[in-house]
Design a protein around this nucleic acid. Sequence first.
DNA 1: ATAAATGCAAATGCTTTGCATTGCC
DNA 2: GGCAATGCAAAGCATTTGCATTTAT
Lengths: 136, 136
Amino acid sequence: MSKETILDQMKEEGLRITPQRVHIVELLFELSHPTADRIYTLMSEKFPYVSQATVYNTLKKLKEIGVVRELMDGDKSSNFEVNEMEHWHFNCKVCGEIYDLEPAKTEALMAVGTQKGAFQVESYQVKFYGICAKCM
Amino acid sequence: MSKETILDQMKEEGLRITPQRVHIVELLFELSHPTADRIYTLMSEKFPYVSQATVYNTLKKLKEIGVVRELMDGDKSSNFEVNEMEHWHFNCKVCGEIYDLEPAKTEALMAVGTQKGAFQVESYQVKFYGICAKCM
DNA sequence: ATAAATGCAAATGCTTTGCATTGCC
DNA sequence: GGCAATGCAAAGCATTTGCATTTAT
């Protein structure tokens, strides 16, 4: 997915293309799993008067139209990423970095989810925790 | 794991056994993946002056000594469970209920986590989202 | 006796909301 | 021109913290 694809998608969904929104999309491509606050901080360099509300609301809309995913990890603040092809995540407990991993066969996972035959699985989330190479 | 096991574990770790804590442990066995607030509400029936701080702090300590697990799902408040044998979860998006599932072969999952040979995986989390039988 | 746990209230941190103003389409 | 997006401030919610009092050991 490219910046242009996302902007097109936004137009299709009736969202307006503002300079702030364009820059949020750009930052989503430049950064690795940024938080809303990290985006806000970097936004401020280019748009000194940008508000957190704009960042949060924009990310929410982008999530709603399906071009952005939110990675939620409880008490910590959410991380965001462009909704590319499916993948899993590895969270380093030392540096906090989030790494992308190739997914295992999804059919196998879905089968687990559907065990007992009573669950209509729409999605699942797999997250690994540990220590990354840099921190070992 | 039984209530007594947990209380023993608490003593071993130097935690004091108070009536409030005993009841929190009992509720953890009676309820299905309760939130801190749900525990607090039910606590109030038996201990009208219990505070949220007591519930939150106790759950935190129980987590620290490893007898309780916290299921975190982002913006929503956390759910808690006794740390029994490993299992996965299914979240129903209609009723919000959390169901326990048998885990698939963990070795396979660990292997995915260790792909690229650079991650020391300590734990992982698998969660399914969808609609449960009751809600279909 | 003493160190930890409790209850209360205030504080925190992330995110959302209300509202007047601005600016895309 | 009309309606959505912005910026600002205030509100919301879950959770944590400080502190004086109580209580388990």
